[in-house]
């Protein structure tokens, strides 16, 4: 078993204690709810898209340190990006969590989640906010579930 500090890196603990962009977005253009029935975690992601770019993003909900930190870091990462860029970032992030290979060099702060790979049960904690974001971008109004 790897060390706890590999999983709960300092940035993760920081973002779980003081999540960024947590709150309601006024005049959101897109929104979706996500649920992880195994944990009981729920998250709502709201977006404000202008001229094809995500200009505002906020999340609400409760979750473990990993899922809260992931939602928080996700909001920081994707602000100003286009939906297509979000898909690319999600692909790299997902590979980081599941593939046994060096992280993509342009992952930035998201690389702190590299320790999650050793804990397969926690991958869904780290991806819940991202799946919910993608559902919001699809805009079909369906809630996502990790099960």
């Amino acid at each position: 078993m790897s060390d706890l500090n590999d999983l709960y890196q300092e940035t993760i603990i920081d973002h779980s204690r003081r999540p960024r962009n947590k709150g309601v977005i006024e005049q959101a253009t897109h929104s979706a709810d996500g649920h992880n029935p195994l944990c009981g975690d729920r998250v709502r992601v709201q977006l404000k898209i202008e001229n094809g770019c995500i200009m505002g993003i906020g999340f609400q909900g409760t979750g473990c340190a990993i899922s809260t930190a992931s939602a928080s870091l996700m909001t920081e990462t994707i602000k100003g990006k286009t939906p297509k860029e979000v898909e690319t970032a999600f692909g790299k992030f997902h590979d980081l969590l599941t593939e046994d290979q060096p992280p993509a060099p342009d992952l930035g702060k998201l690389a702190v989640f590299s320790g999650v790979r050793e804990y397969p049960m926690r991958v869904k904690c780290a991806t819940l906010a991202w799946h919910t974001l993608r559902a919001a971008l699809r805009g079909d109004g369906k809630a996502v579930s990790t099960e």
Partner: peptide, 14 residues
């Protein structure tokens, strides 16, 4: 302020 899944992961290590 500590989620049960985080509690479980730490206890598992112990």
């Amino acid at each position: 302020n500590v989620h049960p899944h985080d509690v479980g992961t730490v206890l598992d290590q112990e």
